[in-house]
């Protein structure tokens, strides 16, 4: 039994198909990040799981219990999901204690107090029980929101861009905190964001969405290094596409010379392909003889990002500043480019 199972889910909203026969599976104690551009349907999917979306087809199961299917639509309050919002959604008329205790109206006062104190200490805000939401910082408010959801002991936690209103420093600290908190409680969670950095830091797996479908779901590393499409590749990081043609079973012919593959090439000889090169997979060196020219240099602390023009094509290259042979590049420098050997990813054009 898995924490969440979504099958063939479709949703129409004002004549647009927001979700298109979407499938998703979330294992127990797994945190999955729904990543995608705005409008790709990720929030709709989250709302559908929470029971807040109408006009759905397909099925949703939470912890083995069917909550959506033809003829079935369990109301949100009976789904046992915790929902965390971008704007925190703390009740402004209630203090922290009452906010956290909001879902505990069936418990006795003593049980209530115990449960609230428990989750408040978990988010390290035990001293703030009497405060009102507007007296707290954004990070504190979001921690209270998490505590409130945890107090309800949901089967599944849903987080809708929970960190986007926080500044950078607080954000990543909170992401770490909440991640370990969820892990400690063995909580499964579905997390929506448009920032891949948040996804990398928070989730076990990333599900990349495009136009109402999940195009790839896997660990962040796999998505970055072995994307299934150019869309995924571009979304996950900067990419150069090198035009190559198959030379033989183990090599490609390209502008940057002959590239040797570690694995057998399945395409037939002379087929034109696009080969994905991450900026750090290209080695750059000063070379007065080369016709490649530096167009732009950006200093980014640990490395320089250099834009190079070579044979009417633009390449983005990263050069670490901390190697023993690090070089300083300037605009107009002549350089040579070399591809580091790795498991090549190619796309048919």
């Amino acid at each position: 039994m898995c924490a969440l199972l979504v099958k063939q889910l479709s949703c129409f909203y004002q004549h647009n198909q927001v979700l298109n026969l979407l499938d998703l599976k979330l294992e127990k104690n797994e945190i999955v990040c729904l990543l995608g551009e705005s409008g790709c349907g990720k929030t709709t999917l989250l709302r559908a799981v929470a029971g807040l979306q109408k006009r759905l087809s397909g099925s949703i199961e939470i912890n083995g219990k069917t909550v959506n299917d033809s003829g079935i639509n369990i109301t949100p309050e009976k789904r046992k999901v915790g929902l965390i919002f971008q704007d925190y959604a703390l009740f402004p008329h209630l203090n922290v204690f009452d906010n956290v205790a909001f879902s505990l109206n069936k418990l006795t006062a003593l049980e209530k107090k115990e449960r609230v104190n428990d989750v408040l200490s978990l988010v390290q805000l035990s001293d703030y029980a009497e405060r009102f939401p507007h007296q707290l910082s954004g990070g504190q408010q979001q921690r209270i929101a998490i505590a409130r959801a945890l107090a309800y002991q949901p089967d599944l936690m849903l987080l809708d861009e929970p960190f986007s209103n926080l500044d950078h420093h607080v954000r990543f600290q909170l992401i770490r905190e909440i991640r370990s908190l969820l892990k400690a409680r063995s909580m499964s969670a579905l997390f929506v964001t448009h920032s891949k950095e948040e996804g990398f830091a928070f989730a076990d797996k990333i599900a990349l969405m495009q136009a109402g479908k999940i195009v790839q779901i896997d660990s962040a590393q796999v998505l970055y290094q072995r994307p299934k499409s150019m869309y995924v590749a571009d979304f996950m990081g900067q990419s150069n596409y090198l035009n190559v043609s198959v030379n033989d079973d183990y090599s490609y012919q390209s502008d940057l010379g002959l590239l040797t593959s570690n694995t057998l090439i399945r395409h037939k000889k002379d087929q034109e392909l696009s080969l994905l090169l991450r900026p750090e997979q290209i080695v750059i060196e000063l070379d007065q003889q080369s016709s490649a020219e530096v167009l732009e240099v950006e200093f980014l602390g640990a490395y320089q990002q250099i834009t190079v023009s070579y044979l009417n094509k633009i390449y983005i290259v990263k050069h670490s500043n901390h190697l023993h042979n690090s070089m300083q590049f300037n605009i107009g420098d002549r350089v040579s480019l070399k591809v580091l050997s790795h498991d090549f990813v190619v796309f048919e054009s």
């Binding site: 949100p76 915790g82 929902l83 919002f85 959604a89 909001f102 409130r148």
Partner: peptide, 21 residues
């Protein structure tokens, strides 16, 4: 904010409880 309603609903409160509370 409508998210307050949603928060309440997902915290196990039905529509009328949400209105009242």
């Amino acid at each position: 904010s409508p998210s307050l309603d949603l928060a309440s609903r997902t915290l196990g409160q039905n529509a009328s409880q949400t209105i009242r509370r």
